[in-house]
Amino acid sequence: MSQSKVTHLDNLARTRLSKHFFLRDFLYLETAAMHGINNVPDDLELAIEAGRQLCEQVLEPLQAAWGRIHIRSAFRSCTVNQLGNELGANCATNQSNYAAHIWDRRDEQGFMGATACIVIPRYLDYFEKTGDWTSLAWWIHANVPAYNSMYFFPNLCAFDISWYENKASPHTISSYIQDPNTGHKKRILAAGVESEFYQQIPLEQRYAACKHILAN
């Protein structure tokens, strides 16, 4: 790689998206590194704007409440996402990831968006003892209204969290982890509507464990 390309990528990575987050935080992916692919946006302006909204409206409020957030993965270029899809590395098709992990493409409706897969270390000890991811999900639903969707994974209670420009899009909360309260993996929030089990429980009561964790 030429010195000019190195300088360009270095300057690009220094782009500040919010008070605590820089573009560099969101560019590293093992798939890209292993295959020697530069995971950088084609449409830099769009990627920065979508990423800035994700950081300012979703990640900063989370970090303010919970302390440092660990970024597992976030932005994917079309090339990297396509490769991940072909390798079966938990990457959806490019088109379904526009305005999600692919920050630098608008979706078919013309909206921008951005997704990051994150871990909240402060919550992790509780999750590993209880298997309960739902308390965190409901806390975010109640306290970070700018999120659009969440999808939880078994390892480290990592989860995808998204910001989406279309404010009419209803919230969803999904998981690959069994819900310890119901024993299934169904969505606990679909099209903005809670599953039947949670409709019987006041919202604040659903995230009581989070209140205890944050108080200590």
Score class of each variant (00 low, 15 high):
Val144Leu: 09
Glu30Lys: 14
Leu9Asn: 11
Thr79Pro: 11
Asp42Met: 07
Pro41Arg: 02
His8Glu: 15
Lys186Asp: 14
Leu54Asn: 08
Gly88Met: 07
Pro121Val: 10
Pro41Tyr: 02
Thr31Glu: 14
Thr7Gln: 15
Lys167Val: 10
Asn85Tyr: 14
Arg76Gly: 07
Glu45Pro: 01
His101Trp: 02
Ile120Lys: 10
Trp66Ala: 09
Ala114Thr: 03
Val193Arg: 15
Tyr151Gly: 14
Gly131Pro: 07
Trp138Ala: 03
His141Cys: 11
Lys167His: 05
Ile37Asp: 04
Ala32Glu: 09
Leu17His: 09
Met34Asn: 12
Val193His: 14
Ser135Asp: 04
Ser174Gly: 13
Arg14Trp: 08
Ser2Thr: 04
Leu87Lys: 13
Arg76Cys: 10
His141Trp: 07
Glu56Phe: 05
Leu29Asp: 15
Glu60Gly: 09
His70Ser: 12
Glu56Thr: 11
Pro41Asn: 05
Val144Arg: 04
Phe153Val: 12
Gln53Asp: 11
Tyr164Ser: 01
Asn94Ala: 08
Val40Lys: 01
Ala47Lys: 00
Tyr207Glu: 01
Leu203Lys: 09
Leu46Gly: 03
Ala47Ser: 02
Ala209Phe: 00
Lys129Gln: 15
Ala32Thr: 05
Arg206Phe: 00
Ser96Gln: 07
Ile201His: 10
Ala100His: 10
His184Ile: 11
Asn11Pro: 12
Leu83Lys: 09
Asn11Asp: 15
Ala137Trp: 06
Ile161Val: 14
Gln82His: 13
Leu59Lys: 09
Lys129Arg: 13
Leu62Tyr: 04
Pro61Met: 12
Ala32Asn: 08
Ser135Gly: 12
Pro170Ser: 02
Ser174Asp: 13
Ala114Glu: 06
Glu49Pro: 01
Met1Cys: 11
Val40Ile: 03
Ala137Met: 06
Ala191Arg: 14
Glu49Met: 07
Thr7Met: 15
Glu108Ala: 10
Ala99Cys: 02
Ala137Val: 04
Ser175Tyr: 06
Ala114Asp: 07
Asn216Ala: 13
Trp138Gly: 03
Leu27Tyr: 07
Asn11Val: 14
Glu45Ala: 04
Phe127Val: 01
Thr182Ala: 11
Tyr123Pro: 06
Ile173Gln: 06
Ala65Val: 07
Leu23Lys: 08
Ser96Trp: 06
Glu49Val: 05
Pro170Leu: 02
Leu27Thr: 05
Lys129Ile: 02
Ile201Asn: 10
Ser77Gly: 04
Ile118Glu: 14
Glu204Met: 03
Lys19Pro: 03
Ala32Phe: 05
Asp10Asn: 15
Arg52Met: 09
Lys186Leu: 14
Arg24Leu: 12
Ser4His: 12
Gln178Tyr: 15
Val40Ser: 07
Thr15Leu: 08
Leu54Pro: 12
Val119Leu: 14
Val144Ala: 10
Thr115Asn: 12
Leu17Gln: 09
His8Trp: 15
Phe21Leu: 06
Ser169Met: 02
Ala100Thr: 07
Ser195Pro: 08
Ser195Asn: 13
Ala168Ile: 05
Gln109Cys: 07
Trp133Ile: 00
Val193Tyr: 11
Arg206Asp: 00
Pro202Asn: 03
Val144Cys: 11
Tyr126Met: 00
Pro154Val: 15
Arg122Thr: 12
Ser4Tyr: 13
Ala158Asp: 12
Tyr28Leu: 07
Asn148Asp: 09
